[in-house]
């Protein structure tokens, strides 16, 4: 059965699911702080055990936000082919370059797979999954407007350093506002070009050149449309009296509660706790056994 050309269905960014869970009610500044902390943690964590614990914590967050698991993971689908290619390349060609003296598991021709390579691949795979779940959780429980207000709040201390904090926030707002608009536009363009015989749904995932070529009829007009919209928006904003850099009051004020302080403390504690986890030996043993 043909998959319909529905781009808006696979754009998770800005797809906020309203709700009243703990995660929904948290102050966006607290959310952003904790999430940033964990993103850093996920990037620096180097052992399988650490990544596994993090992944489980993040899945728990998904449940805490009462989010549909299937939908959170459906955003993974477009990235899946690329992910598989990267994993295979790492597995096959990383070989001896890891510099770690670890036992060779498999040796065919010039390809040799070492234990350390397999561990590395598993860590990076878990890392990507974790980050995706984390980002989905954040965007699905936080409205775009809260997200940018949170960002503005978190960045506020940088204002004395002449960082244009409210402009950065406005840029983010506009980017989030136009994401669904461009998704709809791209969908429309894809359909229009498909109707003229362009092949979007037809190319198989591995036909990379064919796939790249097939998006040209969409990218070119989309780019022109975006430029036109940017120009119109700038005019409209100017006509409304917007002056870059000028002071503005804020319609919505954020309220920091006990719950947010608590969340930050828990987030920080987990951060250090995960850092302290040492690699469990059984994991390496299990991998060695598999081969």
């Amino acid at each position: 059965m043909a998959r319909p050309l529905e781009l808006s269905a696979s754009v998770a960014l800005g797809q906020f699911i309203p709700g009243h869970s703990l995660l929904h009610r948290m102050d966006p500044r607290a959310k952003l702080t904790v999430f940033t902390l964990w993103v850093v943690l996920s990037v620096v964590a180097w052992t399988i055990a650490q990544q596994a614990v993090l992944f489980i914590i993040f899945l728990f967050l998904l449940a805490l936000g009462r989010l549909p698991f299937r939908f959170a993971f459906s955003t993974l689908r477009p990235a899946l082919p690329a992910l598989i290619v990267v994993v295979l390349l790492q597995l096959l060609f990383l070989g001896d370059s890891t510099g770690l003296a670890s036992p060779v598991l498999l040796h065919v021709g010039f390809i040799s797979i070492r234990l350390a390579t397999v561990q590395l691949v598993i860590v990076s795979l878990l890392r990507v999954l974790s980050l995706m779940v984390l980002i989905s959780t954040l965007t699905l429980t936080t409205s775009a407007s809260d997200l940018t207000r949170g960002l503005e709040g978190v960045l506020r201390p940088l204002r004395p350093l002449r960082v244009p904090v409210s402009e950065i926030a406005l840029v983010c707002t506009i980017a989030l506002r136009f994401t669904p608009v461009f998704a709809q536009e791209a969908e429309q363009l894809m359909k229009a070009q498909a109707a003229r015989g362009a092949d979007f749904g037809e190319a198989r995932p591995w036909q990379i050149i064919r796939r790249t070529k097939s998006v040209l009829p969409v990218i070119v007009p989309l780019f022109l449309l975006a430029l036109g919209r940017a120009e119109n928006l700038a005019l409209a904003m100017e006509a409304r009296g917007y002056v870059p850099g000028a002071r503005r009051t804020s319609f919505k004020t954020l309220a920091w509660g006990m719950r947010d302080t608590g969340a930050c403390i828990v987030g920080l504690l987990l951060f250090f706790a995960v850092l302290l986890i040492r690699d469990a030996q059984p994991a390496s043993a299990a991998i060695a056994f598999l081969f």
Binding site: S143, A144, S145, L170, T173, I174, V181, N232, L233, M237
Partner: peptide, 8 residues
Amino acid sequence: DDQIVASV
């Protein structure tokens, strides 16, 4: 669509 800035 070319005039709406905010996301709510």
